[in-house]
């Protein structure tokens, strides 16, 4: 899957899959709109449909198992990743982000990070993400405006997000969990050098 995503962003994969699904549904609806006006003995008609259903059920079960197997290889959870080269603590506040290098275990109210940080390219970065007040979502966008990864920032809990920036440049941080009045102005920047 990871090689495939070099050619196609995850958003495009999702879009293509959903488009294919929608087109199949449209084709079935058009077929039914036309075929329903003809008459066939109901037992024969049902037999035909149920024969097709048997094949469909086997097909969808096999497909679901294969897709589960493939997609479980690309989970975002930290335990499946390599050792981090850098650790960064991220704290969400209503309504700003603060980031600083290192692991911070003291009182969050005293955390002195900033909403901008510089990090190295091609190194695995471990973000330790939490919040002081309500739920936020730490979402990283690349310079082309593509959402590349995210995790929730939840009070009383620490979410560990490990990510390797493959390209230099400016990455924007947005909040993707509604957190109150200025939710849509809660931004930050990661400079990758």
């Amino acid at each position: 899957m990871s090689n495939f995503t070099i050619l196609l962003s995850l958003q495009k994969i999702a879009g293509l899959l959903s488009l294919a699904g929608a087109l199949i549904v449209v084709a079935v609806v058009v077929f039914l709109l036309i075929s329903a006006t003809k008459e066939e003995d109901k037992t024969t008609a049902k037999e035909k449909v149920y024969k097709l259903r048997g094949r469909y059920l086997w097909g969808i079960i096999v497909m679901a198992i294969v897709l589960l197997f493939i997609s479980f290889k690309s989970l975002p959870y930290s335990h499946s990743k390599e050792k981090a080269a850098e650790e960064v603590t991220v704290v969400g506040y209503q309504w700003l982000w603060k980031m600083d290098k290192g692991v911070y275990n003291a009182k969050l109210e005293d955390f002195g990070g900033k909403n901008e940080i510089e990090l190295p390219v091609n190194k695995s970065i471990k973000f330790i993400v939490t919040s002081t007040d309500v739920n936020h979502n730490f979402a990283i966008y690349n310079s082309a405006g593509v959402l590349v990864t995210q995790t929730q920032a939840m009070p009383q809990h620490k979410n560990i997000l490990q990510y390797t920036f493959k390209e230099k440049g400016e990455y924007q941080i947005l909040c993707l969990e509604y957190c109150g009045t200025a939710h849509d102005f809660m931004v930050g920047i990661i400079h990758i050098n």
Binding site: M1, I13, A14, S71, L75, N137, V146, L147, V148, L176
Partner: peptide
């Protein structure tokens, strides 16, 4: 599609 964890990373709350 959205319930696929690997894709959810790029779609969640969009």
């Amino acid at each position: 599609v959205d319930s696929t964890i690997a894709l959810n990373s790029s779609l969640h709350n969009t």
